[in-house]
Computed example of a mutant assay.
Amino acid sequence: MSTTDSASARWTADLKSFFLRYGLFLLLVLVILVFAWLRPSFGSAGNINDMLRSASIAALMFLGLTWIIAAGEIDVSFMSVAALANMVVAALVASGHGWALACLAGLAVGVIFGLVNGLLVAIFRLPALVITIATGGLAGSVAAAIGLGTSISLPSTGFVGALLHVNFGVVPLLTVIVALLYAGAWFVQERLTFGHYLYALEQNRAAVVEAGVPVNRLLLMLYILSGVVSSIAGILLTADLSSGQPYIGSSYFIDGLTSVLLGGMALKFGKPNVIGTLTAVVLLAALLSGAALLGWTDAQRQIVRGALLLCGVAVVVWARRKTRAHI
């Protein structure tokens, strides 16, 4: 092979690697530019503020899910836990209790369900998909029972509502907090041994156990984290919507899986990671906001969500098979 051919092949490989690592970020920029061009109101201060606030709540809910899937497990109860926390808070506030007590009760929901999931999956080694379907169904049923199948309206949103509406220009304070949380999560994932254990679990769990890593404790912590962040998101949704919505979790199911799996296309190709999830959440928020401004129907928006989820699943499965083939 000539020097020219070698340089051309190396340039092509570098270009391919660049798009594999940063293609999701480029797609986000492209989507924002296209919608801003098609609908100038997309870039208005009010729309940006609303988009960032909703994306922040979703990103918070999906943080624990990201690491669970990265470790080779699954949690499909996260959205139902958020819905139950949402209804518990709304019911307590509507009955005259303070927001502080209601928030503690909502947080307890996340801890309990995260602990149950973690114990059954990590300690008793039961199938994660089956267990989290069961606990998610339980959480969803209890949420519906609290409101007798209907929503619970609130007269005020308390200090949580006040927090949601604190802004730095067009950027909500909540967005700043979530960004800092994700920055901390990135440091833990990339700079501490936790991150190495996390991805090693998915590739070869037996080798991680033989290395003396407390795998069961690690998985238990991940499920508790998923429960806690889901419940916090549910609490924030109570104030954001000024109500308890028993079936609100269903709208986050596809978005959660799409964000985590699509996020696996960024930086760590085929590996779910927090920066990828955050980018995918913002991408989905921009797509849904822009689609609404363009008058797309709900069915059309669902088609886009499904297509993105399919892309994310395909990339993650392909990358994992390729990785295992080299082990």
Rank of each mutant, 00 (worst) to 15 (best):
G290S: 09
G264M: 02
V142H: 06
N117Q: 11
V81C: 07
G161S: 00
A122M: 06
A206Y: 05
A108C: 14
V274M: 11
W186M: 08
L38R: 10
L20A: 15
S289K: 15
L218W: 03
V215Q: 04
P155Y: 04
A82N: 02
A292F: 13
N49G: 13
I123D: 11
S80G: 05
A144T: 08
G295Q: 13
F124M: 06
L261N: 08
K322H: 00
A299R: 05
S95H: 09
A162F: 06
H97I: 10
V188I: 15
L174W: 05
Y223M: 08
A45L: 14
M1D: 03
N167F: 04
G263T: 10
L173Y: 05
Y247W: 02
I232V: 15
H196W: 03
R320T: 01
A291N: 13
R324G: 01
L154S: 03
A266H: 04
A105L: 05
I177T: 09
L101I: 13
I224E: 06
L28D: 14
L24N: 09
P127G: 07
R324D: 01
L222N: 11
A122V: 14
Q245R: 09
I48M: 09
I131N: 10
A206F: 02
I146K: 06
L15Q: 08
L309F: 14
D50F: 07
M87W: 02
G23A: 03
L129P: 13
G263L: 09
M51G: 07
A36K: 02
F187K: 10
L65G: 14
L267D: 03
G98W: 12
R305V: 03
S95I: 00
L107R: 03
L308T: 01
L310Y: 12
A94T: 03
P214Y: 11
T150N: 11
L173E: 01
Q203V: 12
L154M: 03
L180W: 04
M1T: 08
S2L: 01
W186Y: 08
R53D: 02
T12I: 01
I254N: 04
P40C: 04
I275E: 03
L218C: 00
L148V: 04
R217S: 10
T238P: 07
L104F: 12
G161Q: 04
L293I: 07
P172H: 12
L257I: 13
I235D: 10
S8M: 14
K16N: 14
L294W: 07
L28T: 11
F35G: 11
V29P: 08
P214M: 11
A45R: 15
G249Q: 03
L308K: 05
A139L: 06
V29C: 10
G43H: 09
A55M: 09
L163C: 06
L241H: 11
T238A: 14
L148G: 07
G169I: 09
L294F: 06
V109G: 14
L222E: 12
V315I: 13
L237S: 12
S226F: 01
A91M: 04
L283H: 12
Y252G: 07
G110Y: 01
A285M: 10
A13P: 14
G212D: 11
G137F: 01
L104T: 09
G96N: 03
L52A: 10
L257H: 09
L60F: 11
I152K: 07
I327M: 12
V274Q: 07
